[in-house]
């Protein structure tokens, strides 16, 4: 019996390194993307934008379906009623005071969303990072007590927000605990870290993340999801101009 267990353990120990190297960088990214993609979601949250003059808070409600469709409605006083609709190939804004519908294309997508460290471009396109980046699995590291894969992603196309990204992805949950965003020459621009997570429907998702701008002092954007529901029925009309302009 003991011999059998010992044999089994030896065999397992032989397989462990094989298993850890068997997974490729592309597969890790694909799994990480899949873990953060839901059939549908409904969430509420807030952006906390900090600089040396204090903190600005913007609150929002959001709905999403798959990787391509999302609707965000801002509820904070300064932006109340402003909405962003993203569909597979379009981004629209609605300003309620002017009753104005704006279709965003090209360079307009580079504008900062509400003065945060997140641009409209960051929100566009699907989460298919495999087609946009060359991915290299550089090794493994422990982040906040979690074993992570360390991957370097180098952009294959010019349409992505950052030419290089280094990400630390949990080996068990495939959650991104940390990410660094670089220029093409390797200069660190921004850093993202996950501060809080939530287990829901068998997945671990980030509900509080911090993005700090390494080119500036004393600035950071914290994004907090205060409430989230996954895989709930949502009407088709939710992701249309009709709902956007409502």
């Amino acid at each position: 019996m003991n011999n059998k267990i010992i044999t089994l353990l030896i065999l397992l120990s032989l397989f462990i390194p094989v298993t850890s190297f068997a997974i490729t960088g592309e597969e890790i990214i694909r799994k990480a993307d899949n873990m953060q993609t839901f059939d549908t979601s409904e969430a509420s949250g807030e952006f906390r934008i900090k600089d040396r003059f204090g903190e600005k808070v913007s609150t929002f409600n959001s709905w999403s379906r798959g990787t391509e469709e999302s609707l965000i409605e801002f509820t904070s006083r300064a932006e109340q009623g402003q909405k962003i609709l993203r569909t597979e190939d379009e981004l629209y804004l609605f300003y309620p005071d002017a009753e104005e519908l704006i279709r965003m294309q090209g360079s307009m997508l580079r504008q900062s969303m509400l003065g945060s460290d997140v641009s409209y471009e960051d929100m566009t396109g699907g989460k298919d990072r495999i087609s946009q980046y060359d991915v290299v699995l550089e090794g493994e590291e422990n982040v906040k007590g979690y074993d992570c894969y360390v991957l370097m992603m180098t952009a294959k196309v010019r349409t992505v927000p950052y030419p290089k990204e280094k990400v630390w992805i949990d080996k068990v949950t495939f959650l991104v605990w940390k990410a660094e965003y670089y220029t093409k020459s390797g200069r660190l621009l921004k850093e993202m870290e996950t501060l809080k997570t939530l287990e829901i429907d068998g997945r671990t998702i980030a509900v509080e993340t911090r993005i700090s701008d390494k080119m500036k002092t004393d600035t950071e954007t914290i994004m907090i999801v205060t409430d989230i529901k996954l895989n709930i029925p949502l009407e088709d009309a939710l992701f249309s101009l009709e709902e956007l302009s409502w």
Binding site: T87, E90, D236, S240, L241, E242
Partner: peptide, 10 residues
């Protein structure tokens, strides 16, 4: 009166 004709049309 606003009448939707689809995702991008009204």
């Amino acid at each position: 009166i606003y009448y939707s004709l689809g995702k991008y049309s009204f």
